[in-house]
Amino acid sequence: MKFPYLKEAVKSLFSKPSTENFPKEVKEAPEGYRGKIVFHPDKCVNCGMCIRVCAPGAITRTIEKVEDGDKVTFQFYLGQCTFCQLCQDFCPRKAIELTKEYLMIAENEEDLMVRGTFIKKAPPKPPVPPVQPKPVAQNDQPKEENK
């Protein structure tokens, strides 16, 4: 009369349970865990690669004209993100980083938004006004006739 698992059951009755006591010590996520997104606005160059490459379209960008360029705010909506880390890989400036932070609990949508704004300076005005090109000289005409 073979009783499966009876030995293990009784043995584990007297051994320490293998439960982590979660609330007291929060275990670190393993290496390379794709958790909460952190956005470094200063590195971003507003190239839009992340928007193009984000499958669920969780990243939105709003640009508004400011006197010395345009104020760009990137908004990562964690509620829509699938944490695939593509944005981090494709960002040329490594501005997006998925941390190991996994406790993302929110009661309203606002807490799930990760925003970063920066001002992208417009290109500086050239010190010298650009040279006007001379009026077309005579020797140009004949070149066109014998083409």
């Binding site: 929060v26 996520a29 958790g35 509620g79 993100c81 996994y102 609990i105 929110a106 799930l112």
Partner: peptide, 13 residues
């Protein structure tokens, strides 16, 4: 009332 983000969220979350 509560939304748990993560795809999929970790059991601790």
């Amino acid at each position: 009332d509560v939304s748990i983000a993560g795809c999929p969220p970790k059991p601790e979350a």
